[in-house]
């Protein structure tokens, strides 16, 4: 396996990030050129270049109040999901683990459905995210509670508990759906696909603190994650209190994912494929893998969202669909490669 130099990968990702941000700010129904956005960016930094490409006040309003918050939400969610995915894959020593595996997604979905069912989302824009968050945390706590025994959290039990809790929450969700009005079911469907449409600065405010805190803690814990990924026996042999660190990392990954899901809806594949791709590029050392995954997750999600906005002329494709469309072929490829090895 080729391990590329970390600095090269990070530099490349930062370049992509800048391009994708400008692309996302310029993509959409309202006409705003890519170079205009670049020029605007330079002017904001006080660099007087591309002076003939200034933008109108209307264009600036679209950029600042519609596209910028949407882009920032995309960056946060992409980074948060990818980092959580990398952490969970390391924690479970399983390259196919993703944030859905500990019940976060099904918990958030049940929370969201409850909010829609009770009509809370119509009362306040914070209602649904809050319910989704509470649902996600409840599901994860239940998963951990079910699997913890004598101060230990065995990985296999945790995986099984996650699956069972996921099934339970999905069943309750299904039950609620059968008694809901059609228009509410439609709202639910819209939420499950995951979208960055109509995201405002309020959404950014809701997510920015928990997601960035989560990411910072995960980065600080990268070294511990390396030890955990060597297996429980190996971790104990070098003196790590395994259960404690497992719990901390699970909680941080769950909170970060829940915060991401509650501002963007359920978005699949980012947490699964991004850490995978980055592991191929920079190796499994989490001190390299996490920063690379965070950047790549942000780039990938904002890229998918921008493509979804521009690929069709009169409508938008939700980002949740784009990540799945681009993610599925890769996932199948991985699955094949995985079975070939066995």
């Amino acid at each position: 396996m080729r391990i590329y130099h970390l600095k090269l990968v990070i530099t490349g990702l930062l370049t992509f990030l800048a391009i994708v941000i400008c692309f996302s700010l310029s993509a959409g129904q309202y006409d705003l050129g890519f170079m205009q956005v670049v020029a605007w960016g330079f002017h904001q930094l006080g660099i007087p270049v591309l002076n003939d490409l200034s933008i109108t006040p209307q264009q600036e309003a679209v950029l600042l109040y519609i596209r910028a918050p949407r882009t920032v939400v995309g960056l946060l969610v992409g980074a948060g999901l990818a980092a959580s995915g990398a952490v969970l894959q390391g924690l479970f020593s399983n390259p196919l683990a993703d944030p859905g595996i500990i019940g976060v997604s099904s918990g958030a979905t049940l929370g969201a459905v409850t909010a829609i069912c009770l009509g809370i989302n119509a009362v306040s824009m914070f209602g649904l995210p809050l319910f989704a968050f509470v649902g996600a945390i409840t599901a994860v706590s239940l998963t951990i509670g079910l699997s913890a025994r004598n101060g230990r959290i065995p990985v296999l039990t945790l995986l099984l508990a996650g699956v069972v809790v996921g099934m339970l929450f999905s069943a309750v969700t299904a039950a609620l759906l059968t008694v809901m009005d059609d228009h509410k079911v439609q709202q639910y469907l819209f939420w499950t696909i995951g979208s960055l449409d109509y995201r405002r600065w309020e959404h950014v405010l809701m997510g920015v603190v928990p997601i960035s805190m989560g990411i910072i803690i995960m980065l600080l814990m990268a070294r511990h994650l390396n030890i955990l990924a060597l297996g429980e026996a190996e971790a104990k042999a070098v003196g790590m209190p395994v259960a404690k660190y497992r719990l901390i990392l699970l909680a941080v990954a769950a909170l970060t994912t829940a915060s991401s899901v509650c501002i963007s809806g359920s978005i699949g594949f980012v947490g699964l494929i991004i850490p995978h791709m980055m592991r191929i590029l920079v190796g499994p050392n989490h001190r390299h893998l996490l920063p690379a995954s965070i950047l790549a997750g942000a780039v990938f999600l904002v890229f998918c969202d921008s493509i979804g906005r521009t690929i069709l002329t009169n409508t938008e494709i939700n980002v949740g669909i784009m990540t799945a469309v681009l993610g599925t072929p890769y996932f199948l490829f991985l699955l094949r490669k995985h079975t070939d090895l066995q």
């Binding site: 390259p95 060597l230 190996e234 190796g283 499994p284 050392n285």
Partner: peptide
Amino acid sequence: IELTFDYTARDM
């Protein structure tokens, strides 16, 4: 010892 990921000698 069973490793899931491709850790290098240095990492170990």
